[in-house]
Design a protein around this nucleic acid. Structure first.
Length: 428
RNA sequence: GUGGGUAUAGCGUAGCUGGUUAACGCGUCAGUUUGUGGCACUGAAGACCGUCGGUUCGAAUCCGACUAUCCACCCCA
């Protein structure tokens, strides 16, 4: 019988790695909490139209990367990102009628049918936040500072914040026209993809890696010169707020973002330490999205942070997140009567919240000790006929080899806690 | 969707000028005389050499296709 394999572009997070995820997730939740964000959980699949309307009919994500599934008479789409579903939930549940701004965060998996490579999977995990109701650049700064604090405190180094403003629909339209006018005379010289971009998304031309396109685009007009007064002051205010928060950034006029809903502020945190997919966090303002999804005209913004990418960065930089949990006590019984006793003691400790194990393999004492060592048991207790007779046994500290007498009854847990505390203090 | 690299036990590798029982390290399991782990030693299990097809008397070794995987483009987190 052939072994079935996991689908292309998916990952198994194994027991040895799950503690990293748990530590990271707890940290993300705690940090979001200090910024006043509460968790929202939304469905994994939504009506396909939510994404085509929200993310944008012409985007690559919607046009060629969505997993659209059918079940009986309905079709749905596995979310390719978290924002659309989150905004949908906010609207459907009337959260905009509560105190504004509404601040939510989520940790979820997203699905995009792309060719997998370093830092790019078909199912990937995202931490994201959305803040709805504020048009102020102070909100932009707050959201950016949340991302910044997470990256700093989790221990990421060498990551840069790039910001840009892509204007509102009014000024962006003028800029697009200016760009098209600039590139049009060079149309034939541009690379194939850029010729397409000229129509579809002219701002992408500025980001092309082809030396020819780069050269042509050298003197192209910049979006920042085309911002209307409102967008322009918004951007200036944001920069001022970032300065006040002591967050360093560089203005990068080439940041475009491939999702249609962005307006005004866009930003990315980028690293070079994990290969070509270096954007660990990306986001921005989307003042038109809520209305686009049928809600009241409401300014909002947010970001998404790629957790696999973040963990890649941390691993490459040698940052360790938490150690795997270890067993506190291993009972090594010899003989049937001892095994019965060990079974009961194990259960008793577990009820007290102490992690305990005993033999389920019928192993010799020697083999049991080897096993206890392998699983990293902190303490072991050998139980044989002598111990049963005296109702006392030796608790062995596996690291120091030190042995202390303990009672083999209900008093064990209490005694163990004392010993464990002493052990911890001794190590500090 | 496009391009390039790789594909041998759970993991990491050797073998690849084609020749008969596919090797090594780590890991796993058992044991090293009867009540104690980390070292060492002994032994065992575990691979139809990614799949299918071709060349050949004979292929893990050569060729092709497919699949998977990695990297890059594209795109994004």
């Amino acid at each position: 019988m052939a072994l079935l394999k996991r689908p292309n572009g998916t990952e198994d997070i194994l027991p040895g790695a799950s503690s990293d995820w748990q530590t990271l997730e707890k940290f993300l939740r705690d940090t979001a909490d200090t910024f006043g964000f509460s968790e929202i959980r939304v469905p994994t699949f939504e009506q396909t139209e939510l994404f085509s309307r929200g993310v944008g009919e012409t985007t690559d994500v919607v046009q060629k990367e969505m997993y659209t599934v059918s079940a009986r008479e309905s079709t749905f789409t596995l979310r390719p990102e978290g924002t659309a579903g989150t905004i949908r939930a906010i609207l459907q549940n009337g959260l905009l009628n509560e105190a504004l701004p509404q601040r939510v965060y989520y940790i979820l998996s997203c699905f995009r049918h792309e060719r997998p490579q370093a830092g790019r999977l078909r199912e990937f995990h995202q931490f994201g936040v959305e803040m709805a109701g504020s048009a102020s650049p102070a909100a932009d700064a707050e959201v950016i500072s949340l991302a910044k604090q997470i990256l700093d405190q989790v221990g990421v180094e060498n990551i840069e914040l790039h910001i840009n403003s892509i204007g509102c629909p009014v000024c962006r339209k003028k800029y697009h026209e200016a760009l098209k006018a600039y590139f049009a005379p060079h149309r034939e010289e541009l690379c194939e993809t850029c010729q397409e971009r000229l129509e579809k998304n002219p701002m992408r031309l500025l980001d092309c890696k082809s030396p020819i396109c780069k050269e042509i685009g050298k003197d192209a007009p910049e979006i920042l010169d085309y911002l209307c007064e409102d967008c322009s002051t918004h951007f200036a205010q944001l920069k001022k707020n970032l300065d006040l928060l002591d967050i360093s950034y560089s203005v990068d006029p080439r940041i475009v973002r491939g999702l249609d809903y962005y307006t005004k502020t866009v930003f990315e945190f980028v690293t070079t330490s994990i290969g070509a997919q270096g954007t660990v966090c990306g986001g921005g303002r989307y003042d038109g999205l809520i209305e686009q999804l049928g809600g009241p005209s409401t300014p909002a913004l947010g970001f998404g942070m790629g957790l696999e990418r973040l963990l890649l960065v941390l691993r490459n930089q040698g940052v360790t997140l938490g150690e795997p949990k270890r067993v506190d006590v291993y009972f090594a019984p010899m003989g049937d009567a001892a095994a019965d006793k060990a079974l009961q003691l194990t259960a008793m400790l577990r009820r007290e919240g102490i992690s305990a194990q005993t033999d389920v393999m019928g192993r010799s004492l020697r083999a049991q000790m080897k096993y206890a060592d392998k699983i990293g048991a902190r303490f072991t207790v050998v139980i044989g006929d002598n111990e049963l007779a005296e109702n006392q046994a030796k608790l062995k500290n596996m690291q120091s080899g030190e042995q202390i007498s303990v009672p083999l009854d209900a008093a064990f847990a209490e005694r163990f806690s004392d010993i464990e505390i002493a052990d911890r203090l001794a190590k500090e």
